[in-house]
């Protein structure tokens, strides 16, 4: 196995794929050196901090002096911490709810926005508006809208038969508010993904289906959905990993409250690190999050066959 396969490869490839003649065996395949900037960036800003966090999770450290090695203390505490258990459950529920709420809405909006209706441009511009606002601004706006004494909620609620509505002060209410506000914030992004995906579907497929007598629903069910398979995976992975790491919205909107009823895992990490100054414990939580989110996205990619990158347009 020396140079033989290397010389064999370009021959097997369609010639002149980028318009120019083949420039030797390495023409379309840059050397490993090209990955260096990316690797360096990843190493310095992701791998190295993660390694440090892994080390910190084995220590007790309050941000002052030197970390004290305490072995697996943080990990045994984490395993038995009822607050962490609750946070995990809350995070999982939030992730599932986020996906279940955002996917259908974004999908339908995206497919609709890919069409050529007269009102499309104007309405799309309105729908995409939240995309322009920062998370902090969004959370602050909703906080004032939902103020039980001085916000619009205080005016509306008594008129719809709920005189003392205090959504953010109620455990279930606060949780629903987080789901709703993050949906309001992120649906535009996913709609954009689906719009792009839907625009890629060749019109000929729909024309053929129409000739075969397919209605709108049948066309959506048998053409649009299968064609958007990869988009659905991309969007779902973004949603799930995003929901597992939601933080800013929770911090500003509810502060993990009332009590600890919206304290999801990333918020608990912040609380442990920057309110209780237990950096070791916070690192253990952080590492758990990294592992969980990576595992979830790997599983999703594997299960959906996204990893194989099979074209949705095979045979066309």
């Amino acid at each position: 196995m020396s140079a033989a396969p290397a010389t064999a490869r370009p021959a097997a490839r369609p010639p002149a794929r980028r318009g120019g003649a083949a420039r030797g065996p390495r023409a379309g395949r840059p050397s490993a050196l090209w990955t260096l900037p990316g690797l360096l960036f990843f190493g310095v800003f992701a791998a190295l901090p993660m390694a440090l966090v892994a080390y910190l999770s084995l220590t007790t450290w309050g941000g002052l002096g030197d970390p004290r090695f305490t072995g697996l203390d943080n990990w045994t505490r984490l395993a038995g911490d009822p607050v962490m258990h609750r946070a995990v459950v809350l995070s999982l529920v939030l992730t599932a709810a986020t996906w279940a709420v955002q996917t259908p809405i974004s999908l339908l909006l995206g497919v609709w926005a890919a069409g050529r209706q007269r009102t499309r441009a104007v309405l799309s511009a309105i729908f995409f508006l939240p995309l322009l606002l920062s998370s902090a601004a969004i959370a602050l706006i909703w906080r004032s809208l939902l103020d039980p004494n001085f916000g619009p909620l205080a005016w509306i609620a008594p008129r719809v038969g709920a005189p003392d509505a205090d959504l953010l002060g109620d455990p279930t209410g606060a949780f629903l508010v987080i789901i709703a506000v993050t949906a309001w914030q992120f649906i535009p992004l996913h709609t954009l993904l689906y719009q792009g995906g839907a625009r890629q579907i060749p019109a000929s497929l729909y024309e053929a289906a129409e000739i075969d007598g397919a209605g709108r629903w049948t066309a959506f069910r048998h053409i649009t959905l299968p064609q958007l398979r990869n988009t659905i995976t991309t969007s779902s992975v973004l949603m799930v990993v995003g929901a597992l790491t939601y933080f800013d919205t929770v911090l500003i909107l509810t502060g993990g409250g009332p009590g600890s009823d919206t304290t999801i895992v990333p918020f608990l990490m912040y609380e442990a690190g920057f309110e209780r100054w237990e950096m070791g414990y916070a690192s253990a939580i952080a590492l758990t999050l990294v592992v969980a989110a990576t595992a979830v996205s790997l599983v999703m990619v594997r299960v959906t066959g996204f990893g194989a990158m099979r074209s949705t347009r095979e045979g066309m």
């Binding site: 990843f42 800003f45 992701a46 791998a47 901090p49 993660m50 440090l52 966090v53 910190l56 941000g63 992975v237 990993v241 597992l244 790491t245 933080f247 990333p266 990490m269 912040y270 690190g273 920057f274 950096m279 916070a282 690192s283 952080a286 590492l287 999050l289 990294v290 989110a293 990576t294 996205s297």
Partner: peptide, 16 residues
């Protein structure tokens, strides 16, 4: 996804 979550995990260090 890993760098993104890694970054969240490393908030501890980044903020420091």
């Amino acid at each position: 996804t890993t760098p993104r979550v890694g970054a969240a995990g490393a908030i501890v260090l980044a903020l420091l």
